[in-house]
């Protein structure tokens, strides 16, 4: 079991390193291939008005003339140890984890990301609780009453849920619950959990529901399919033959086995969602990571985008690790092999 955990950990670290390489290559190497020179990159920091000499100096200081692997190494040590930057207005310290300097506002990227992380995290956690509860419950009930009115209605709603884009459901729910009925605050507000938990939940309720609607639909369908398969297994027949109550057969014997694949998908979904709930964040005006990434992309602010991508990668890797460990808890065949 311990060797299993260690192996998984090493794999997770390896995964993160590979992802940083790929993202680094995409953001620093690709522009070069597309014709960008160290000078044009440096121009982003010093502005178009600067003289050629200043630009060259800046490019020199930022290491843009170094070979790409060296640049990658600098960036990586920056992440691990922190580094110092000199973009012309004096040397600035960028403490670890240093994800680089924003091209645009010349501030370190990390603090901004850290400011926004709780927003995205709150959004993801709340939505996940909702969609897991409703999605799995609906899926189980649908599977048990296969072909019933409930099943058909639930699956129709689920199909609709999958098909409706967030910018539509989001806007519709905002206009109804917030502007018309006034039940929830309008978008663009975020209260910290530590400031006022009730306000925190109140403000996030609509985004949660909107996001959960999309995911519940997927999870209901997944759970239903998983339950239908599991309830046909021989060991379910055995459980019934023992004289177990049907509820126990379903929950203890059926659901536990049916949930295994759902755990896998949930881990990935959750990890990804931290940085990619762009639509939801935009519709509800939440200052989260998704918005930061979008801003970065719009402004060609490579360090900012790279920082967000790295963070998402770390979350996905962690989620993967947790899933693998959960797997070992759920399925003894994994840990005793």
């Amino acid at each position: 079991m311990i060797s299993y955990i260690i192996r998984r950990l090493i794999a997770a670290v390896g995964l993160v390193i590979v992802i940083t390489m790929i993202t680094f290559a995409i953001f620093y190497l690709m522009p070069r291939l597309a014709g960008a020179t160290p000078e044009t990159l440096a121009t982003r920091y010093v502005g178009r008005t600067a003289t050629g000499a200043t630009v060259e100096q800046t490019a020199q200081r930022l290491g843009f003339y170094d070979p790409v692997p060296v640049q990658y190494w600098h960036w990586l040590t920056g992440v691990v140890n922190g580094t110092e930057f000199d973009i012309g207005s004096g040397v600035e310290k960028c403490p670890r984890p240093c994800l680089g300097y924003s091209f645009r506002n010349k501030d370190p990227v990390t603090p901004e990301i850290m400011r926004r992380l709780p927003v995205s995290f709150s959004l993801a956690v709340g939505a996940a609780v909702l969609w897991l509860t409703f999605g799995v419950a609906t899926g189980v009930l649908s599977a048990l009453r296969r072909g019933s009115f409930f099943d058909r209605a639930a699956m129709t709603v689920a199909l609709a849920g999958v098909s409706m884009p967030i910018f539509w459901t989001g806007v519709m729910s905002l206009s109804l619950f917030s502007y018309k009925l006034g039940w929830t605050p309008p978008g663009g507000q975020y209260t910290k959990l530590s400031d006022n938990p009730l306000e925190w939940a109140h403000g996030l309720l609509l985004p949660w529901i909107t996001l959960a609607l999309l995911f519940s639909a997927q999870y209901a369908r997944l759970t239903r399919a998983g339950m239908l398969e599991t309830m046909g297994e021989d060991y379910i027949r055995t459980a019934r033959a023992k004289g177990l109550r049907e509820r126990r057969v379903v929950v203890k014997h059926g659901l536990r086995a049916a949930l295994t694949p759902i755990v896998t998908i949930f881990g990935l979904d959750f990890g990804l969602l931290i940085g990619s709930a762009v639509l939801t964040e935009t519709v509800f005006g939440l200052p989260g990571l998704g918005q930061l990434a979008i801003d970065g992309t719009k402004n060609n602010d490579l360090p900012q985008v790279l920082g967000v991508v790295l963070l998402i990668a770390v979350f996905v890797a962690i989620a993967n690790l947790v899933v693998d460990l959960l797997y070992a808890v759920i399925d003894p065949r994994v840990r005793t092999k």
Binding site: E233, D234, Y235, T238, H253, R256, A257, I330, D331, P332
Partner: peptide, 12 residues
């Protein structure tokens, strides 16, 4: 008791 004891017992 059933034919296939592997699939007839819960693996977990």
């Amino acid at each position: 008791i059933f034919q296939d004891p592997l699939s007839s017992m819960h693996p977990f």
